[in-house]
Amino acid sequence: MAKGVKPRVKVPKSASAGDTITIKTLISHKMESGQRKDGDGNPIPRSIINRFTCEFNGQSVIDINLDAAISTNPYFEFEAKVPEAGEFKFTWYDDDGSVYEEIKSIAVN
């Protein structure tokens, strides 16, 4: 499922060095759990995002394994340290092998 998937990430534009920031991420994805049945009673196969990672300048902030019990349009909120200016890289891994990426840079003042 590669259609209609749109990542949205909220990261502050700047922070002081060593600051803690809150990051909110959301990706539009139907997260088909594999539990539902279609009109003919056949189970609809599972199609979810199974992993999400956030890295800052190549160092891991959080690495999340998702299961089918995560809601449609998976949303995550977590906190990160900002030791220097750089880039946050967000990656979502789909069951079908697709990988969705988003990059946000942050300045240090």
Binding site: T20, I21, S33, Q35, E55, F56, Q59, S60, V61, I62, D63, I64, N65, L66, D67, A68, A69, I70, S71, P74, Y75, F76, E77, F78, E79, A80, K81, P83
Partner: peptide, 30 residues
Amino acid sequence: FAAGNPNPDVVTFNFGPLAASHSASTRMRL
């Protein structure tokens, strides 16, 4: 974990060196 779901696994958060707090929020199905 959700004890009453058909599949009890919900999510696993693995915190890296740059995680400022060992906390996270999300939304799940029950």
